[in-house]
């Protein structure tokens, strides 16, 4: 595939922040592509650089202490070096974003309707206030907010978390974006509301031809919504493949760990939720070589060199991972009893 053929193409993106403790390499070489109508999930533990990756696409991480390398192109248009004015048009117009915490993501002093209208008007200079309001009402209706015509006059604090997230989705859809980024859209919500919001995203996926980037720390969330999955660890992509490849033929030990810790409704795991032992490394002075090495029970001498992100299975060339183990070793090592996990003797958290 030639560059520019994708809706969105991120290649070797690096983002670092100058802080008092040193340089934080929050994103350290991330590449992935997104096509029209496709859902790509970015999965990883807290601090792995998912939000920084997502926000960088919109220039939201720009600041005097941030520096960027690599590229991110929307239909061939470079985003990393885009001017503020270009960015302003892209934000909310071509790429829209939904954030994690709906409770704090809406401005408390303005009515819901006028916050949606504000975005419509920012991208459409022709539209009148009342037309924009009609569009806002239609959007709220579309994302399942009951009595939308009355509710446009409500303030955010009069809405529940789930309803506010619907407002955020309505707002994001208001200018028919080409790319929709949802950064942990359900994490702050109750389980039942989570399911409803995910349903909403699923519907959206059918109804629009936007590409969707779904950021989450929970592989379980993406199980029946994502087309492809990007697994991130400590600022790097460690594995990338289709949903089936990641779920049924995972190549990286970190992915095994994530799969082993999914809460599954169909399996009784009460009291037996294995999590990955240890904590992610410091992004200021990460371990040399494979970042996962300190927590990896399968590490060996080669792991002090950085493994490349490449395909190891000839039959699936798009399925890439960053691990020195051979494909055969991986197949044996990931099997923990009747399922996939990080290691046979993984500690069990009661």
């Amino acid at each position: 595939m030639s560059p520019g053929a994708h809706l969105l193409e991120v290649s070797n993106l690096k983002v670092s922040f100058q802080t008092e403790e040193g340089v934080v390499r929050a994103v350290d070489g991330v590449s992935f592509a997104l096509e029209q109508g496709e859902v790509v999930a970015i999965v990883g533990e807290s601090g792995s650089g998912k939000s920084v990756t997502a926000m960088t696409l919109l220039g939201l991480t720009r600041s005097p202490n941030a520096s960027f390398e690599g590229s991110a192109q929307l239909e061939g248009k470079e985003l990393i070096t885009a001017s503020e004015e270009q960015l302003r048009e892209i934000r909310g117009g071509e790429i829209a974003m939904i954030f994690q915490d709906p409770m704090s993501s809406l401005d408390p002093v303005y009515r819901i309707g006028s916050q949606i209208v504000e975005q419509i008007v920012a991208h459409d200079f022709q539209v009148s206030k009342s037309e924009a309001m009609e569009r806002a009402i239609a959007l709220m209706d579309r994302v399942g907010i009951p009595r939308a015509r009355e509710r446009v006059r409500s303030y955010p604090h009069e809405f529940s978390g789930g309803m506010r997230q619907r407002v955020m989705i309505a707002m994001a859809l208001s200018c028919s974006p080409k790319v929709l980024i949802a950064d942990e859209p359900t994490t702050a919500l109750d389980v039942t509301i989570q399911a409803q919001i995910l349903d909403e995203l699923r519907t959206l996926r059918k109804e629009t031809d936007a590409g969707i980037i779904l950021v989450t720390h929970d592989l379980g969330v993406v199980a029946d919504i994502a087309d492809r999955i990007v697994v991130m660890y400590a600022g790097r992509v460690v594995e990338q493949g289709t949903l089936d490849e990641i779920f049924y033929n995972p190549q990286h030990p970190y992915t095994w760990g994530l799969l082993g810790s999914i809460t599954r409704v169909d399996r009784d795991t009460t009291g037996l939720l294995p999590s990955i032992p240890g904590t992610p490394p410091s992004l200021v002075s990460p371990p040399a070589g494979c970042h996962f090495r300190p927590r990896c029970p399968h590490a060996f001498d080669r792991c002090t060199d950085v493994p490349a992100l490449e395909a190891h299975l000839p039959e699936t060339p798009q399925h890439v991972d960053r691990c020195w183990l051979s494909a055969m070793q991986k197949r044996d090592l990931r099997q923990v009893g009747d399922r996939i996990g990080l290691a046979a003797d993984e500690p069990v958290i009661a």
Binding site: M55, E89, R91, G93, S105, Q119, A122, M168, M171
Partner: peptide, 9 residues
């Protein structure tokens, strides 16, 4: 952050 992401100046 939301306001910025909406494309406001």
């Amino acid at each position: 952050r939301t306001a910025r992401a909406k494309g406001l100046s």
